[in-house]
Design a protein around this nucleic acid. Structure first.
Length: 575
RNA sequence: UGGGCCGUCGACUAAUGGUAGGUCAAGUGCCUUUGGAGCACUUUGUCUAGGUUCGAAUCCUAGCGGCCCAGCCA
C-alpha cells in the first residue's frame, strides 16, 4: 500500500454558503459596504515564535486566512518577535510548516523585527511631540506608581523631562550605555485612566540579548503594544483580529496610530477556542515538553498542530471542526467529542480498511485443512468503491480480539461464545465448540468449526448471524506496535482551576497505552509514516514517524464509536 | 466593589423587532458482511425582574452571574 492511496481523496469542506454567519464576517461586509478601506481586505496572522501552534491557533488561522480568502483579500504571516529572550528560529520553522499543513498560503512573510528601524523613528517623533519620555523608575517603582484597579496612578518624577533630554537619553539607551532595566521609554498618556493600559505604557525596554534575526543590532526592544498596531499599519492591514483579552488594549492600539497619523488599521477581538480535557496554554505545553511528560511538541497527545498531525488528524478535519465550532465573544469550552466527530467523518470517507488485532486470542478451526491458505477478497473502503479490493490470507489458526469472545456471554452480547455462530469478516461463518484454559483459568484458545459453504461471509441457505468480527491469520500476521491515547488530562475544564491548583495536577497517568505486539494483516508490514487506516471495528490509526519497514508503529487517532461499550456500561450501572 | 467584555438546549452557535434553527452530545427505531457508516425520529434552551411595542432572545432600566486588566510577556 502506498501513501498516495490515503491522500488521494479529501472529503469536502464545509461550503461557504452553509457556514454560520458571525460578527467578524458582518463587520467586513459592513466595511466593504461603507467603502472604509476602498474595498480592500487584508488580515494578518501574528504568532510569537516562542512555541508550537496548537488547535486554538488553528481557529485564529482559519479566521485570519479564511475570512480574507472569502472576500478576495490577502493575509500576511507575521512573526511577532519583539522579545528575543523567549523566541527562537526553531519555532519560526515549525509555525510555517503548520500553517501550510492546514492548507493556507500567506501573501507576505514578515517579522515585527523588520520594522525595528521604523518603530525607532516613530518613537523619536513621539518624543518630539511630547508624547513619550524616558523613565528612570525601576520596574517595581513603575508598578507602584501605576496605581491599582480602583485607584488612579501618579506621575513619574521623570515624566516632564524636556524633549532634548528625552531624545538624548533614548539615543543613549539605544547605544547601549545603560544596563538592562535601568530605564524605559514610556508613552505619555494619562496616569489616571481607568484603563490601566493607558497609564503611560512602556514602549521600549533595554534588553542586551541577541535576537534571532537582528543579532546584536539592538539592545532596546519594543513592547507588544507599541509594535503591533504600527506593524499592522505598515502592512495596511484592514482587519486585525485578535483574542478577547486584548480588547482593553484597543484604545492604546488606536492611540499610537492616531498620534503617528498612519494607516488606520483596526483591531477586532473574538473568543479563543477552548476544548474540554485540553490544555491550551503555550507556556504550560512547553513545560510538558521540557520536563519530559510528553515526548515532544509533536507527541500525539499534545493539542499542537504537529501533535494532531502525528496522531493522524487531517487538516480538513481540523478546519471543519473550527468552522463548526464558530466564533463569538463569549468564553466557552467546546466538547472534545465534537473534534473527534469531524476527524471520524473525514477518515470514514478516505481511510482504507484493514484488519488488526490488538489483544489476540487464538482461534483454531478444527475442521479446516492444516496446511491450507486461502486468499480472501476484502473491500478497501465500503464508503468508496474506487478504493478497490485486496486479498487477505486465511488459514486454520487465526487471532481474534479477546473482547470478541466470552465464555459466558452477557445479555445483548452478540459476539463469539460457546455454541454460537458468528461471521469472520470476508471469511467464513464459524461456531465455537470448546476452549483451552491456562493454569489461571483464563481462556487462551478457542476451538471452532467453520461452514465451508459460507466462504466470503454469506450463507447460501440465507441464515443470519448476529455479529461479524475481524481476524488475522496467525501464521501470516505481522507484529506491530500500537499506541493508544487517552486524554492527557483528567479535568474537563482546565481553565477553571482553584486558587492553588495547577493544570499539571490533573495529568492522566493512563494517557498512553503501548500495545507492543499487535497482530496486523501482512500488507501493513511496510506502512508508510503518516498513512492512515481504519482498523476495522477498532478505530482510525496512523503510521507513526518511528515506523521502520517490517516494524510498523501505529498511533490511534480516534476510536470508532462503540455502541456495545455503551450498552455494556449501562448494564454495569444497573447491577 | 475602577474599567472593559459577555450571558440562547448538556456543549458550541444562528435567528439583525415578526415561526427560537443548525452541529456535537444524549435517546429511540430502521438498516447493516464493521455493534462502524448511513437514514428517520425524539428530548432539552432565550440569566432574573420590570418597561417600550400589535409583537422582544433582540430595544430600555435595574439586578444577578461569568471572563479579562495592576509584565520592563504577547
Amino acid at each position: 500500500m502506498n501513501s498516495s492511496f490515503t491522500e488521494a481523496r479529501t472529503s469536502e469542506n464545509i461550503a461557504p454558503e452553509s457556514r454560520p454567519s458571525n460578527f467578524l464576517r458582518e463587520k467586513i461586509v459592513e466595511d466593504l459596504k461603507t467603502n472604509k478601506y476602498q474595498g480592500r481586505v487584508r488580515t494578518r496572522f501574528p504568532p510569537e515564535p516562542n512555541g508550537y501552534l496548537h488547535i486554538g491557533h488553528a481557529k485564529a488561522i482559519c479566521i485570519d486566512f479564511g475570512l480574507a480568502e472569502e472576500f478576495g483579500g490577502k493575509t500576511n504571516l507575521r512573526f511577532d518577535d519583539t522579545n528575543p529572550e523567549k523566541e527562537d528560529i526553531e519555532y519560526v520553522d515549525a509555525i510555517m510548516e503548520d500553517v501550510k499543513w492546514l492548507g493556507f498560503h500567506w501573501d507576505g512573510l514578515y517579522y515585527t523585527s523588520d520594522y525595528f528601524d521604523q518603530l525607532y523613528e516613530w518613537a523619536i517623533k513621539l518624543i518630539k511631540n511630547g508624547k513619550a519620555y524616558v523613565d528612570d523608575l525601576s520596574a517595581e517603582e513603575i508598578r507602584k506608581y501605576r496605581g491599582t484597579l480602583t485607584e488612579p496612578g501618579k506621575d513619574s518624577p521623570y515624566r516632564n523631562r524636556s524633549v532634548e533630554e528625552n531624545l538624548n537619553l533614548f539615543e543613549r539607551m539605544r547605544a547601549g550605555e545603560f544596563p538592562d532595566g535601568s530605564c524605559v521609554l514610556r508613552a505619555r498618556i494619562d496616569m489616571a485612566s481607568p484603563n490601566l493600559n493607558m497609564r503611560d505604557p512602556v514602549m521600549y525596554r533595554i534588553l542586551h540579548a541577541e535576537h534571532h534575526r537582528t543579532g546584536n543590532k539592538w539592545c532596546i526592544y519594543p513592547m507588544y503594544d507599541y509594535a503591533h498596531g504600527q506593524s499592522d499599519s505598515v502592512e495596511k492591514v484592514t482587519h486585525s483580529m485578535c483574542s478577547l483579552e486584548f480588547a482593553d488594549h484597543q484604545p492604546l492600539y488606536n492611540w499610537f496610530i492616531e498620534q503617528l497619523g498612519i494607516f488606520p488599521s483596526q483591531q477586532i477581538e473574538f473568543d479563543r477556542l477552548n476544548l474540554t480535557y485540553t490544555l491550551m496554554s503555550k507556556r504550560k505545553l512547553r513545560q510538558l515538553v521540557e520536563q519530559g511528560t510528553v515526548r515532544g511538541w509533536d507527541d500525539p497527545r499534545m493539542p499542537t498542530l504537529s501533535g494532531l498531525r502525528r496522531r493522524g488528524y487531517t487538516p480538513e478535519s481540523v478546519r471543519n471542526f473550527v468552522t463548526a465550532a464558530g466564533v463569538s465573544r463569549t468564553n466557552g469550552i467546546v466538547e472534545l467529542p465534537m473534534l473527534e466527530h469531524f476527524v471520524r467523518k473525514d477518515l470514514n470517507k478516505r481511510a482504507p480498511r484493514v484488519m488488526a488485532v490488538l489483544h489476540p486470542l487464538k482461534i483454531v478451526i478444527d475442521n479446516y485443512p492444516e496446511t491450507e491458505v486461502e486468499e480472501m477478497k476484502a473491500q478497501n473502503n465500503p464508503e468508496d468503491e474506487s478504493a478497490g479490493w485486496r486479498s487477505v490470507p486465511f488459514s486454520r489458526e487465526l487471532y481474534i480480539e479477546q473482547d470478541d469472545f466470552r465464555e459466558v456471554p452477557p445479555p445483548k452480547y452478540f459476539r463469539l461464545s460457546p455454541g454460537r455462530e458468528v461471521r469472520l469478516r470476508y471469511g467464513y461463518f464459524i461456531t465455537a465448540k470448546g476452549v483451552v484454559k491456562n493454569d489461571q483459568g483464563e481462556v487462551i484458545e478457542v476451538h471452532c468449526t467453520y461452514d465451508p459453504a459460507t466462504r466470503g461471509g454469506n450463507a447460501p441457505d440465507g441464515r443470519k448471524v448476529k455479529s461479524t468480527i475481524h481476524w488475522v491469520s496467525a501464521r501470516q500476521a505481522v507484529d506491530g506496535e500500537v499506541r493508544i491515547y487517552e486524554n492527557l488530562f483528567t479535568k474537563e475544564n482546565l481553565g477553571d482551576l482553584k486558587e492553588r491548583e495547577d493544570a499539571l495536577d490533573y495529568l492522566n497517568p493512563k494517557s498512553l497505552e503501548v500495545v507492543a505486539h499487535a497482530k496486523l494483516e501482512p500488507a501493513l508490514a511496510n506502512a508508510i509514516s503518516g498513512s492512515r487506516y481504519q482498523f476495522e471495528r477498532l478505530g482510525y490509526f496512523c503510521a507513526d514517524l518511528d515506523s521502520k519497514p517490517g516494524a510498523p508503529i501505529f498511533n490511534r487517532t480516534v476510536a470508532l464509536k462503540d455502541t456495545w461499550a455503551k450498552t455494556e456500561k449501562k448494564q454495569a450501572g444497573k447491577e
